[in-house]
C-alpha cells in the first residue's frame, strides 16, 4: 500500500494522492524545463527545479514490457507502461486474460481502493 507513512515522509507528493482520491491522474510538469517525469518526487529530475505543476493526464499509454507471475493461485501482471506524455511507469495490469497481453497493447489508468490509504493507479486494457 502507498501507506500514509510514505506520504507523510514525502509531503511533496500529497497533491498526487489527493488527486487519486478525487479519481484524477496527474503528472508532474516542470515550469523551468517544460518536461514531465515519473515518478513524482517534488523536484525535477532533469533540472532540479522545484517549480513544478501538476497536470491532469488521461492516463493512457501502451505496454512497454510486462511479466506474468504464475507462482500464485491467480496470476498477476507487472508492466512498464509508456504513457502518452512520455514517461514509462511501473504498474500492474489488473483486468483481462494475461495470455492476451502483448507489448504495444493500449492501456489506461484505473484506480483501485486501498485500505487505509488513497486509491492507487493500476492499468486496464483499453
Amino acid at each position: 500500500m502507498a501507506g500514509t507513512e510514505f506520504i507523510e515522509n514525502s509531503p511533496e507528493t500529497k497533491p498526487f494522492w489527493d488527486a487519486t482520491a478525487a479519481g484524477l491522474f496527474v503528472l508532474p510538469w516542470c515550469r523551468q524545463c517544460q518536461r514531465t517525469h515519473w515518478y513524482p518526487r517534488g523536484v525535477c529530475p532533469y533540472c532540479l527545479s522545484t517549480a513544478l505543476d501538476w497536470r491532469e493526464s488521461p492516463g493512457e499509454g501502451e505496454i512497454h514490457s510486462f511479466s506474468v507471475n504464475r507462482m500464485r493461485k491467480e496470476p498477476y501482471v507487472l508492466a512498464y507502461v509508456a504513457l502518452s506524455e512520455g514517461p514509462i511507469m511501473l504498474g500492474n495490469v489488473v483486468d483481462g486474460d494475461p495470455a492476451t497481453l502483448s507489448i504495444g497493447r493500449k492501456v489506461k489508468v484505473v484506480f483501485k481502493p486501498t485500505s487505509g490509504g488513497p486509491p492507487i493507479p493500476f492499468f486496464a486494457v483499453r
Binding site: A2, F6, I7, N69, N92, G117
Partner: peptide, 10 residues
C-alpha cells in the same frame, strides 16, 4: 521510490 513501487504487486 518505494511509495510508487510498494503498492505495485511484484
Amino acid at each position: 521510490d518505494m511509495m510508487w513501487e510498494m503498492p505495485v504487486r511484484h
